[in-house]
């Protein structure tokens, strides 16, 4: 009897594989190829018309002795150029892009949520989607829009309806955060700044730990593992730090938080 039962199961499994729900497949030709062909056609018509109507820019010949004001990087790098306002070049131009690229690469490894694989859903992956949209749309795209459309001569802020005034002088009233809170001694200021930054990451990581445990439970935290957790919290805190630094500059005119002879943050 048991023999028969297992044979029946095996037959059932074989049948399922052949005709079961695995078969929502359609022929690539014409179903997919037609969609691709039409897409190609529309995009090529659009590109051709656009290219007939709008000429690629060509300015006067290169002259290394005459720097235009403003000098802007290609538009897709203007987000990085925009955060140069808030961070030194080694940070905005080297560390930030490295973190962005590494951060993008580790996404599949730190996201262990098995849901939402291959279909649109917000409910099943709220925090992943919010984080991605914050990084991609809010930080990356909006800084590109600012850098492209509202930065003029001297990298000063000009609304699109304002005339670019190349002689506009903006008072540089920025001061470092330690100075702002009354610290005048050099080394005390450095220690203060360093403690603030280390404190931000330590407290931020702790806060994130408790938040994830509260939200998802200890069992999830164990499954997630230390490496994934620390990587995620480090990258998330870096994204938040960019916003904090922007706000400190815009509201309190803070230039640096940490000032040392070697690096300033």
């Amino acid at each position: 009897m048991a023999e028969m039962g297992s044979a029946a199961t095996r037959v059932e499994v074989t049948l399922k594989k052949a005709t079961g729900p695995g078969d929502d497949k359609v022929h690539t030709w014409p179903n997919l190829v037609r969609a691709e062909f039409l897409c190609t056609l529309f995009v090529m018509i659009f590109l051709l018309l656009w290219s007939l109507l709008v000429d690629a820019p060509l300015e006067e010949p290169a002259d290394p002795g005459r720097t235009p004001n403003p000098s802007k990087a290609p538009w897709y790098f203007l987000g990085l150029q925009e955060i140069l306002v808030f961070f030194d070049p080694w940070h905005a131009g080297v560390v930030a892009p490295t973190f962005i690229i590494m951060g993008l690469m580790v996404i599949p490894y730190i996201d262990i949520n098995p849901k939402g694989n291959g279909y649109y859903t917000f409910k099943e992956r709220k925090y992943e989607i919010i984080t991605f949209i914050f990084g991609f749309h809010v930080l990356w795209i909006s800084t590109i829009i600012i850098g492209t459309f509202v930065r003029g001569p001297g990298w000063n802020w000009f609304w699109p309806w304002e005339v670019w005034d190349a002689h506009l002088v903006e008072a540089l009233t920025n001061q470092d955060l330690p100075y702002l809170v009354g610290i005048r001694d050099y080394w005390t200021a450095a220690v203060f700044g360093l403690s603030l930054i280390i404190g931000f990451f330590v407290l931020g990581t702790a806060a994130m730990y408790w938040w994830v445990v509260w939200l998802k439970g200890r069992e999830f935290m164990q499954r997630w593992g230390a490496a994934r957790f620390f990587l995620t919290s480090f990258l998330t805190l870096n994204m938040i730090a960019v916003v904090i630094k922007m706000l400190l500059r815009h509201i309190l005119n803070v230039k640096y938080i940490l000032v040392t002879p070697w690096i300033n943050v």
Partner: peptide
């Protein structure tokens, strides 16, 4: 990202 297509095995 929105379709979660980076999830295992991809």
């Amino acid at each position: 990202f929105m379709t979660g297509s980076y999830k295992p095995p991809r």
